[in-house]
């Protein structure tokens, strides 16, 4: 078994850092499993949204209320942030120096925060228009699914902020590297969930 052999799905460190690579196998695999478990939660919320589409009780549905343009811009922001995080991971893997890694992480964090700010503005517009989650089941399921993704992004941003402290503190040591790999998976996972949200929730609302 060569050291460079892939030990887990995603970016492996075998080419550049064998010692961390040896340890990363079970750590990253464990995180994949966590993500799968988390994916079940989202899947169930999608299903709930699907079955509650008609539960409007004479009130507005989420599809009547959200605006597609900001959602589209949010999609672009989040996809871009996944790219920038990818750049941070690549820089970390190939030892491009702390500053490069940090720079890409800061950009990612900024994009993440931008996404959250826009999303919060969307929600407040909806709420100001009277589309509260307590209005009907349709809105309840919308406000469980989409903000849960937002909450994940917020957790990701907090995690990024912590890593922004840890990278200068400890340098790119074993634990920092493994943590960045995990954060990367988390961040890309949120992207995938958002793509599902954009398609199933937002675009579906357009075709009715």
């Amino acid at each position: 078994m060569s050291a460079a052999e892939a030990k887990h799905a995603g970016i492996n460190l075998g080419d550049s850092d064998r010692e961390t690579h040896e340890k990363a196998g079970s750590e990253i695999f464990g995180f994949w499993i966590f993500l799968m478990s988390d994916a079940v939660i989202f899947a169930l919320l999608f299903a709930t949204y699907g079955v509650m589409l008609r539960g409007t009780a004479g009130g507005p549905s989420a599809a009547d209320e959200y605006r597609i343009l900001p959602a589209f811009i949010e999609t672009l922001i989040l996809l871009t942030s996944s790219f920038t995080f990818g750049m941070a991971s690549v820089a970390m893997k190939h030892g491009r120096g702390l500053r490069t890694v940090l720079a890409w992480m800061v950009i990612t964090l900024a994009l993440g925060l931008g996404f959250l700010a826009m999303e919060l503005r969307d929600f407040s517009t909806m709420i100001a228009d009277g589309a509260l989650p307590s209005r009907n089941g349709n809105l309840s399921s919308f406000f469980a699914l989409v903000p849960l993704h937002g909450l994940h992004v917020a957790a990701g941003c907090l995690w990024l902020a912590v890593m922004l402290v840890q990278v200068p503190c400890f340098g790119l040591d074993k634990r920092v590297k493994i943590n960045l790999l995990r954060l990367g998976l988390f961040w890309h996972f949120l992207d995938i969930v958002w793509i599902a949200i954009f398609s199933v929730v937002y675009l579906q609302g357009l075709i009715r």
């Binding site: 478990s37 709930t48 509650m52 307590s134 089941g137 406000f143």
Partner: peptide, 28 residues
């Protein structure tokens, strides 16, 4: 996770007035 989702939704109903499982307003 389905249990966590079920209890969390019930909590949202009870704490924030959501309508996942209520008799009225589209709950099921």
């Amino acid at each position: 996770p389905p249990l966590t989702v079920a209890t969390a939704m019930l909590a949202l109903d009870r704490y924030l007035g959501f309508h996942f499982f209520t008799n009225d307003l589209g709950g099921n």
